[in-house]
């Protein structure tokens, strides 16, 4: 069955104590699209991502389908194994590891990740060099290749964002949830990040679902935008129409 939507969310909610962070949200993301998710701080965007990736459990009811398959019962690592990658708003990197090691960790199906294959270097070294080349290209594109030997606890916030993006892209996901990929990054680099996102989509057909506050950059690259406000999706459309909708922009800036 081919579905033009890679991700379908039907009526999911999440409350913390008495506060409803995500309130009966339904949305669909088209395969191969770059889709934006905007909204004021605290509108539930990151929580929605957490529900989709499985980092948090949704309230009972509603469904999350990825590639036509219900994933809401799966633990996070299984969801990610299906090709649903993500990054975090405050970068979650492995701080005891270097930038290169972080990036190299991401690819799935590494032979050397099995404990009884690991001692036999010859059986995984070929793959390791392959992946290292890919990592090098990736890191060069994001201009973090010179940081390869630095621990991720020693790099700047913007560089952390880039390292995290580089790690997520190395996973070759079918769909990637990016939580504010350009926050804390220099404006020129923000453009480059979105350029590499567009390139990645072109080359591999990856779907991107992006939370972003830099609307000027985001709107240049996205196909569709969802606007979230107080836990609800209040609008959906092409960026041009969203920009024109004065009320929405007011709601967004006003809160």
């Amino acid at each position: 069955m081919t579905d033009e939507n890679v991700l379908r969310v039907q009526g999911i909610s999440k409350s913390f104590g008495g506060v409803t962070a995500v309130d009966n949200v339904s949305l669909a993301v088209k395969r191969g699209s770059i889709t934006g998710l905007i909204g004021p701080n605290g509108s539930g965007k990151s929580t929605l991502f957490n529900l989709i990736s499985g980092a948090e459990k949704k309230n009972p009811g509603g469904s999350i389908e990825f590639e036509g398959r219900a994933i809401d019962g799966l633990p996070p690592h299984r969801r990610s194994a299906l090709g649903l990658g993500r990054t975090f708003q405050t970068p979650r990197l492995f701080t005891g590891m270097t930038v290169l090691e972080n990036t190299m960790l991401a690819p799935r199906g590494q032979k050397g990740e099995r404990p009884f294959v690991a001692p036999f270097r010859k059986r995984w070294e070929g793959q390791e060099i392959e992946l290292a080349k890919k990592a090098q290209e990736q890191m060069t594109r994001l201009e973090i290749d010179k940081l390869y030997g630095k621990l991720t606890s020693e790099i700047s916030g913007g560089q952390m964002k880039l390292a995290q993006l580089s790690t997520a892209l190395m996973e070759d996901p079918k769909m990637l949830l990016l939580d504010e990929p350009t926050a804390g990054v220099a404006p020129r680099l923000a453009q480059d990040i979105f350029q590499s996102i567009t390139d990645e989509r072109q080359q591999k057909g990856t779907t991107f679902f992006i939370i972003e506050h830099r609307l000027e950059v985001l709107f240049k690259h996205v196909d569709t935008v969802f606007v979230m406000h107080q836990g609800r999706i209040i609008a959906e459309g092409r960026p041009e129409s969203i920009v024109k909708d004065k009320k929405l922009i007011d709601a967004y800036l006003g809160s």
């Binding site: 980092a55 990610s80 990658g85 993500r86 975090f88 979650r92 492995f94 960790l105 990740e113 294959v117």
Partner: peptide, 20 residues
């Protein structure tokens, strides 16, 4: 790569899960 995996889990379990 297994050593890498071990260190990553030590550093951040949630992030490791998000990488499958």
């Amino acid at each position: 790569p297994y050593g890498r995996l071990l260190k990553s889990i030590r550093d951040d379990k949630v992030a490791a899960e998000s990488l499958a």
